[in-house]
């Protein structure tokens, strides 16, 4: 077991999306759990191929943000215009709610947008200045035209020699690299 945590994991490079998808499926079916794929663009079906099931947290976060925005927007106006500083404008009731709709709406959007942006970054644990995958020289191309798959060393099935041999045996694998910490 001593070699398990010497490296962050092993990385295999592919030259096309189809090769990456096939490689991910093979890896998943071989029983590896702690795997991640990296690509220059979103690829349909890649999360399924690495065995990840979305929990829908982003959508829930955005809903909560929008709800807080709507409530705070409306009650801000209600409290300021009807309770703290009641102001008679053209004989309208203090709680002239139709006039409060535009600001309520804008506040809903504003907080939902904040939730979407910061929720996405938060759930992705970004910003993250350092990550071991960047230690691989070739990984630079993950933001251009190359595709990578990583099996992390924390995976129960991880064994440095055997896993390397497994990755080298994947169809159309371009190269296998150690991912140092």
């Amino acid at each position: 077991m001593s070699d398990v945590h010497d490296v962050y994991g092993l990385m295999v490079e592919f030259a096309s999306t189809d090769d990456l998808l096939a490689g991910c499926e093979q890896t998943r079916d071989a029983g590896f759990k702690n795997i991640d794929a990296f690509s220059p663009a979103p690829i349909h079906g890649l999360t399924e191929a690495i065995g990840y099931e979305g929990k829908g947290w982003i959508a829930k976060t955005v809903f909560i943000g929008g709800f807080i925005g709507a409530m705070s927007g409306f009650f801000l106006q209600y409290w300021t215009s009807a309770i703290d500083y009641p102001l008679n404008i053209g004989g309208r009731p203090y709680l002239s709610w139709p006039a409060f709709i535009p600001v309520t709406f804008e506040m809903t959007i504003l907080l939902a947008v904040f939730a979407a942006v910061f929720g996405m970054l938060g759930w992705n644990k970004l910003p993250q200045p350092y990550h071991p995958v960047f230690n691989v020289q070739r990984f630079k191309l993950a933001s251009s035209n190359r595709f990578f798959l990583v099996i992390e060393s924390v995976d129960n099935k991880f064994d440095r020699q055997a896993t390397r041999a497994f990755l080298e045996g994947l169809d159309n694998a371009v190269g296998v690299y150690d991912v140092d910490y």
């Binding site: 990296f38 979103p42 999360t47 992705n124 970004l126 960047f134």
Partner: peptide, 17 residues
Amino acid sequence: SMGWRGSAVHWYRYEVA
């Protein structure tokens, strides 16, 4: 770029957001 690395799970959440 906030350390963006193009991870599949990140892309998934990114597209939803």
